[in-house]
Computed example of a mutant assay.
Amino acid sequence: MGDHNANVRPSNSKSSGATNPYSIDLDNFTKRLKLLYSHWSEHNSDLWGASDALAVATPPPSEDLRYLKSSALNIWLVGYEFPETIMVFMKKQVHFLCSQKKASLLDVVKKSAKDSVGVEVVMHVKAKSDDGSGLMDNIFRAVHAQSNSNGHDTPVIGHIAKESPEGKLLEIWDGKLKNANCELSDVTNGFSELFAVKDNIELTNVRKAAFLTSSVMKQFVVPKLEKVIDEEKKVSHSSLMDDTEKAILEPARIKVKLKAENIDICYPPIFQSGGEFDLKPSAASNDENLYYDSTSVIVCAIGSRYNSYCSNVARTFLIDANSMQSKAYEVLLKAQEAAIVH
C-alpha cells in the first residue's frame, strides 16, 4: 500500500454478507486496531517518539496521485479513505472529528474497539457551517486530562511531520496542535514499521497488483515496443504512456480477470529513450518520439494498484547493444539476482 502511500481510492473489501458497499470489515478493524496498540506500546520509545497520543489528519480529496501515511492508515484500519477527518488515538480513547456522514459510517466500530482493546470511541461531529475549532479544543482537553491522570505535565502528541496541512480544517488543526501546550514528536517511522508486515488480505492484494503489472508489461508493453521498432514507426513517449495506462485500467483488454473498479495506476507509465533519462519515480514521459537506433536504450517503468496496494516494475531495453553495454547489463543483472537471493 502506497505507503503505503497518490490519492488512495477506497478499498472495496466488505464484511461477509454485507450489502452496504461502504460497510467496514469489523474483523479486520479489530485485528488491526489491536496491532496498532500493541506496536505502539512495545516500540513507544524507539519508533513512536515516546508519544502519549497519536494525531492523524487526512486532507481533502485530490485528483493528484500521492502517497500519504494518513490515507494509508485509513485504508489499513477501516478499509476506506476518510478525507477531512481527524483521528486521535489515546490509551483509553479514540477520538474522531468528521462530518455526520463519516461519523455514521464509523459508528459501527465503537463496540469492537471497546471489546477488543478496551478503548472508547468518541465522535466529534462537525456541522458544515462549523470550522471545527471548538470540537478540536474538546479533543485537546481530553489529551491533557489523560496526561494529568498519568502524572505528566506536558503530553507528547505523535504526528506525521512531513504531511503539510491542506484545507481550512487541517490548517486550523495544525495551528492548534502547535499551540496546545504539548510536545510534538514525529511518528512516521512507527507507521512505516506497522505497515511493513502484510497480513493475508494485504498479500493477496499485492499479488493481484503484481500479476496485473507483470501482465501489462509482458502482454502489452513488450509486444507494442517490438512492433514499433520492427515497423520503424514514429510513436511518442507520451502516447505510449497513454496506451499503457489504458491497459492497466482496463485489464480485460489483455484478458486479465481482475475487477476494473478495484484497479488504479501507481503513477503515469514512464517511457524514456534518446539518451536523456530521469530515474526518479516522479519522471514523466515527454512528447519526443521513441528513439530506437542501434545501441540506443529504452527505459520503461509501470505500476498498478489493486485495492490501493502497489506493484511496480521497470525494464531496460537495449537495441543492438555493443559489448560494453552488454557487459554492464550482465553486471547489473547479477547484482539484482544477488540482492533478491539475500
Results as ranks from 00 to 15, higher is better:
residue 268 P to C: 09
residue 101 K to S: 14
residue 69 K to L: 15
residue 283 A to F: 03
residue 121 V to A: 02
residue 30 T to S: 15
residue 226 E to A: 14
residue 134 G to I: 03
residue 191 F to V: 09
residue 135 L to C: 00
residue 230 D to C: 05
residue 106 L to F: 06
residue 35 L to D: 06
residue 96 F to Q: 02
residue 197 V to H: 04
residue 180 A to W: 01
residue 106 L to Q: 11
residue 277 F to H: 01
residue 182 C to T: 14
residue 41 S to W: 01
residue 258 L to N: 07
residue 73 L to Y: 10
residue 252 A to W: 01
residue 303 G to W: 03
residue 158 G to Q: 04
residue 260 A to V: 08
residue 121 V to N: 00
residue 192 S to M: 09
residue 172 I to Y: 01
residue 184 L to N: 05
residue 166 E to C: 07
residue 176 K to H: 12
residue 320 D to Y: 11
residue 107 D to R: 13
residue 110 K to V: 01
residue 45 S to C: 09
residue 88 V to N: 03
residue 199 D to I: 12
residue 45 S to H: 04
residue 107 D to T: 04
residue 166 E to I: 12
residue 22 Y to T: 04
residue 320 D to W: 04
residue 159 H to R: 11
residue 52 D to L: 00
residue 275 G to T: 10
residue 156 V to K: 11
residue 277 F to L: 12
residue 320 D to I: 07
residue 299 V to P: 01
residue 33 L to V: 05
residue 23 S to M: 01
residue 281 P to W: 07
residue 195 F to G: 13
residue 136 M to Y: 08
residue 67 Y to C: 13
residue 210 A to N: 13
residue 295 T to Q: 03
residue 269 P to G: 14
residue 48 W to A: 15
residue 320 D to M: 10
residue 289 N to T: 05
residue 227 K to P: 06
residue 245 E to Q: 12
residue 238 S to Q: 10
residue 10 P to L: 03
residue 30 T to R: 09
residue 331 V to H: 10
residue 204 T to W: 03
residue 6 A to M: 05
residue 307 N to S: 12
residue 185 S to H: 09
